[in-house]
């Protein structure tokens, strides 16, 4: 089913998605915010540029964007998959608890901030290009993987990655000689077990974007984990 978003504001567009069949294609998208917020059991494909908070509180289903997306993609999403063929703006995957966000190109500031995990819910965010500053700030769970494709001479991640990280894992497809990490994380080269995990999460990602999995794996990977789950414990004294 096709929805022409040209004349629709965000509420009307969301009503159209709710009342359409699960599989629908939105054309003429021009910055409408909150697309598919709080929905599940959907399969939405978007032509054009969705506005901020695409798939906020998403609880299942799939959203595919055949271009760029703006800020706060997948804010607090709980399940489902968001696939972006271009770039995303800032704060992608804020506090996401489950599901996957696959970004083919670059991400802005604060991607994966406060990402968490719980029981069977382990969110995965894969950024094909490079990530902006504060990647994985306050990360509490899940996996953030940055591939650094087509990055030219840019660093794979800009300043202050992992600030306040206290859970989960970040993997960067690079030796990261030029990246400065905070003191409360452990940084190491990926071992065989890590590489198996990377291969597993990259398989569906590569299928989405028609990338060659072996090419992707043919590179050094750096793994970052927090040194403890209670890094701030010692700061207080009962009064």
């Amino acid at each position: 089913m096709r929805i022409d978003a040209t004349e629709l504001d965000f509420s009307a567009l969301n009503r159209a998605i709710r009342t359409s069949e699960p599989a629908c294609e939105i054309t003429g998208c021009l910055g409408q915010r909150f697309i598919a917020a709080g929905m599940d059991d959907i399969d939405v494909t978007i032509e054009g540029i969705p506005g901020n908070a695409l798939g906020a509180y998403l609880n299942g289903g799939t959203i595919t964007v055949r271009g760029n997306a703006q800020d706060a993609v997948g804010d607090t999403m709980n399940a489902g998959r968001i696939v972006i063929h271009g770039n995303v703006g800032d704060a992608a995957g804020y506090a996401m608890r489950g599901g996957e966000i696959y970004i083919r190109k670059n991400a802005g500031y604060r991607a994966g901030i406060h990402m968490k995990a719980y029981r069977d819910k382990v969110p995965v965010m894969i950024i094909g290009g490079v990530a902006g500053s504060f990647l994985g700030e306050y990360q509490a769970g899940g996996l953030i993987l940055v591939l650094g494709l087509e990055r030219g001479n840019r660093r794979i991640v800009h300043n202050f990655p992992c600030t306040g990280m206290h859970g989960g894992k970040m993997i960067l497809r690079d030796e990261c000689q030029d990246v400065i990490f905070p003191s409360q994380v452990d940084v190491r080269k990926a071992d065989e077990q890590d590489r198996a995990e990377i291969r597993a999460v990259l398989t569906p990602y590569c299928a989405c974007f028609g990338l060659d999995l072996d090419d992707m794996m043919d590179a050094p990977f750096t793994v970052v984990t927090p040194s403890g789950t209670n890094p701030y414990q010692q700061l207080y004294i009962a009064n």
Partner: peptide, 25 residues
């Protein structure tokens, strides 16, 4: 919905809110 034993840290700001427009969002 976080694992046992991990700190629950609520940052001072909402990191996606820097203005009334962001709050509106």
């Amino acid at each position: 919905m976080i694992p046992e034993g991990t700190d629950a840290i609520s940052p001072a700001p909402h990191h996606d809110i820097y203005s009334i427009e962001d709050l509106r969002q």
